[in-house]
């Protein structure tokens, strides 16, 4: 599983990585050594996704406002 630069991640990329982590954690060979890596990464991804849904992207808002005027 490769971790991409979270800053530039799209929602669907973040979701895809999240899904692969869940799959990894569900598999038999998920060791406790990877657990904190997986959980912290998934929390990070969840945060990105939620932020995309719930926080305003001011830059985009501005671009669209200019386009509309």
């Amino acid at each position: 599983m490769e971790s991409q630069d979270t800053e530039k991640m799209t929602y669907s990329q973040a979701i895809a990585e999240l899904e692969s982590i869940v799959k990894e954690m569900q598999s038999e060979n998920c060791s406790i050594d990877n657990l904190s890596k997986y959980t912290s990464r998934s929390l990070e991804l969840l945060k990105i996704c939620k932020a995309k849904l719930l926080t305003t992207d001011e830059e985009l808002k501005k671009i669209l406002a200019e386009l509309e005027s």
Binding site: Y11, V22, L35, Y38, T39, L43, L46, K50, L53, L54
Partner: peptide, 24 residues
Amino acid sequence: RAQSALDTLNAVSDMIADMASEII
């Protein structure tokens, strides 16, 4: 559609917590 995405995120979040505590 966005709400269901948000619900999915929350469900995944719970699921990860459950799985982590299960593994522990």
